[in-house]
């Protein structure tokens, strides 16, 4: 079947795409952990001390997840964890949106306050939903080309 042969390739693209997303997102935040903590705090979900810890740990987790996806180790599990993270991010954005907070989501940037009308929650949610779709593809079809999984399973 044509599609059966195509899936590993589609999944490979999804895997590398998702890896890039997490590597970029984590890489942009890891240089200024205090800033990352402030971005978490801007959501006003956790108190400031908790936000600081989340803000410091999150970039490292994102980079680790990105690297795991890049080499393709336990792709289904990595994808599941990615999906979980993305669901949490989307929930956070929707929560900030519904409370009328004027913040940048801080997904790939500094986060924090923005002027009235400069928020783009809809766009942020749509983008994260797109990433969630990539994770979904990998959850259903975790077999990919050029992966550690494939190497260890003895696939050619």
């Amino acid at each position: 079947m044509q599609l059966d042969r195509a899936w590993p390739w589609i999944s490979t693209v999804a895997r590398l795409g998702l890896a890039a997303v997490f590597l970029v997102a984590g890489g942009l935040k890891v240089g200024d952990l205090a800033e990352s903590g402030r971005a978490v705090n801007a959501y006003q979900i956790f108190d400031y001390d908790t936000s600081k810890v989340i803000g410091a740990v999150q970039p490292f987790l994102e980079i680790a997840l990105g690297l795991l996806l890049l080499i393709g180790l336990a792709v289904r599990l990595s994808a599941a964890i990615s999906a979980l993270l993305l669901v949490v991010f989307i929930a956070g954005i929707i929560s900030a949106w519904s409370r009328g907070l004027q913040i940048d989501c801080g997904c790939f940037s500094k986060g924090g306050a923005v002027a009235n009308g400069d928020t783009q929650y809809g766009l942020d949610v749509a983008r994260d939903a797109g990433f969630l779709l990539l994770a979904g593809v990998l959850l259903v079809k975790p077999r990919t080309r050029f992966s550690m999984d494939g190497l260890l399973m003895g696939e050619r």
């Binding site: 740990v57 987790l61 680790a64 690297l67 795991l68 180790l73 336990a74 599990l77 990595s78 964890i81």
Partner: peptide, 8 residues
């Protein structure tokens, strides 16, 4: 995978 994430 779990170990790598814990280390991170």
């Amino acid at each position: 995978v779990v170990a790598v994430l814990v280390v991170a």
